[in-house]
Lab assay of single mutants.
Amino acid sequence: QWKVGDKCSAIWSEDGCIYPATIASIDFKRETCVVVYTGYGNREEQNLSDLLSPICE
């Protein structure tokens, strides 16, 4: 189960590419979260089910 502060990978809606991110907040009722893309600072809402394991850098 994901928690705030977890590192993950998420698909950015603008280009469909996968980027490393950190979970900033979680809404368990809606099963969504807000991620912050590492190195970019962009925030975006994602479905918890769409999150991927962190990418090894």
Score class of each variant (00 low, 15 high):
residue 14 E to N: 08
residue 30 R to I: 10
residue 38 T to N: 05
residue 35 V to T: 02
residue 32 T to E: 03
residue 16 G to K: 04
residue 53 S to H: 08
residue 51 L to Q: 04
residue 57 E to V: 13
residue 2 W to N: 14
residue 29 K to N: 13
residue 27 D to H: 04
residue 22 T to G: 03
residue 46 Q to S: 03
residue 33 C to H: 00
residue 46 Q to N: 04
residue 42 N to A: 13
residue 41 G to I: 05
residue 18 I to Q: 04
residue 5 G to F: 08
residue 7 K to W: 11
residue 19 Y to G: 02
residue 6 D to F: 09
residue 23 I to P: 03
residue 17 C to K: 15
residue 3 K to G: 14
residue 5 G to V: 03
residue 56 C to N: 14
residue 6 D to Q: 01
residue 8 C to G: 00
residue 19 Y to C: 01
residue 32 T to G: 05
residue 38 T to H: 09
residue 47 N to D: 05
residue 25 S to N: 02
residue 4 V to G: 11
residue 54 P to H: 07
residue 21 A to V: 09
residue 8 C to D: 00
residue 33 C to R: 00
residue 27 D to V: 09
residue 25 S to M: 09
residue 47 N to A: 10
residue 56 C to L: 15
residue 5 G to H: 02
residue 43 R to D: 05
residue 1 Q to G: 13
residue 2 W to F: 07
residue 34 V to C: 03
residue 46 Q to P: 05
residue 40 Y to Q: 06
residue 11 I to L: 06
residue 57 E to N: 11
residue 18 I to N: 01
residue 5 G to C: 12
residue 3 K to R: 11
residue 23 I to R: 02
residue 18 I to W: 07
residue 8 C to Q: 00
residue 47 N to E: 05
residue 32 T to C: 04
residue 14 E to Q: 14
residue 17 C to A: 10
residue 25 S to E: 10
residue 24 A to N: 04
residue 41 G to F: 05
residue 21 A to G: 05
residue 50 D to F: 10
residue 31 E to R: 14
residue 6 D to Y: 08
residue 41 G to M: 10
residue 22 T to F: 08
residue 29 K to A: 13
residue 19 Y to P: 03
residue 33 C to V: 11
residue 42 N to G: 09
residue 13 S to D: 04
residue 34 V to T: 03
residue 14 E to R: 15
residue 49 S to D: 06
residue 43 R to S: 14
residue 42 N to E: 04
residue 56 C to I: 15
residue 43 R to F: 12
residue 30 R to K: 13
residue 52 L to V: 03
residue 48 L to D: 00
residue 30 R to A: 12
residue 8 C to I: 10
residue 7 K to L: 12
residue 20 P to R: 10
residue 3 K to P: 15
residue 40 Y to A: 04
residue 53 S to V: 10
residue 46 Q to E: 05
residue 36 V to Y: 04
residue 31 E to Y: 11
residue 16 G to I: 08
residue 29 K to V: 14
residue 2 W to I: 14
residue 50 D to W: 11
residue 11 I to P: 01
residue 27 D to Q: 03
residue 35 V to R: 02
residue 15 D to R: 10
residue 44 E to R: 07
residue 30 R to D: 07
residue 38 T to K: 05
residue 48 L to M: 04
residue 7 K to E: 12
residue 56 C to E: 15
residue 27 D to P: 00
residue 49 S to F: 09
residue 56 C to V: 14
residue 39 G to M: 11
residue 26 I to V: 03
residue 12 W to F: 10
residue 45 E to A: 06
residue 42 N to M: 14
residue 26 I to A: 02
residue 18 I to H: 01
residue 55 I to N: 09
residue 51 L to K: 02
residue 47 N to L: 12
residue 12 W to Q: 02
residue 50 D to V: 07
residue 1 Q to V: 07
residue 28 F to K: 09
residue 21 A to N: 00
residue 47 N to M: 07
residue 23 I to T: 02
residue 4 V to W: 06
residue 33 C to K: 00
residue 13 S to E: 03
residue 24 A to T: 09
